[in-house]
């Protein structure tokens, strides 16, 4: 498990925003602007977590989440969906596709990194409990 975070996001400004915030708080960030590249980089870098936009061109976030889950070597890597979908049904759909958490856009710069850290610590804790 590494300290790096992979962001899969096609909107340049959103990418810059998340990248900037996370880097300021000490994370190293890997960028991918489409789903295919995201999966490739996930496999290559084994990031500590993946932030996944849902509305991506060609391969959408649901498909990316499902495919990521098919790789056993990524099974411990939490996927946090970041999306402006405001519907509860979409939240359930992305969780069903394999995401562990969900952050809604517009992201709140005051709490965004904290939320990520909270997801990561709950995720790690529940993983450890699983092994106990």
């Amino acid at each position: 498990m590494s300290d790096s975070l992979l962001i899969i996001e096609d909107n340049e400004q959103n990418m810059y925003l998340m990248h900037f915030l996370l880097e300021k708080k000490g994370f190293s960030v890997i960028e991918a602007d489409n789903g295919r590249e995201g999966i490739e980089k996930a496999l290559r870098f084994k990031p500590g977590a993946i932030l996944l936009d849902i509305q991506l061109p060609e391969m959408d976030g649901y498909a990316v989440a499902r495919e990521l889950k098919e790789h056993p070597e990524l099974s411990g890597v939490p996927i946090i969906a970041v999306t402006s979908y405001a519907m509860v049904g979409d939240r359930e759909r992305i969780l069903a596709a394999g995401a562990t958490g969900y952050i809604e856009k517009p992201i709140n710069p005051d709490t965004f990194v904290e939320e990520i850290i909270r997801y990561l610590s709950t995720h790690n804790r529940s993983n450890q409990e699983g092994y106990a």
Partner: peptide, 14 residues
């Protein structure tokens, strides 16, 4: 509608 606003709110916050 929300994507550009995401960016305005986000960068203002930063």
């Amino acid at each position: 509608l929300r994507t550009p606003l995401n960016s305005i709110i986000g960068f203002t916050g930063i």
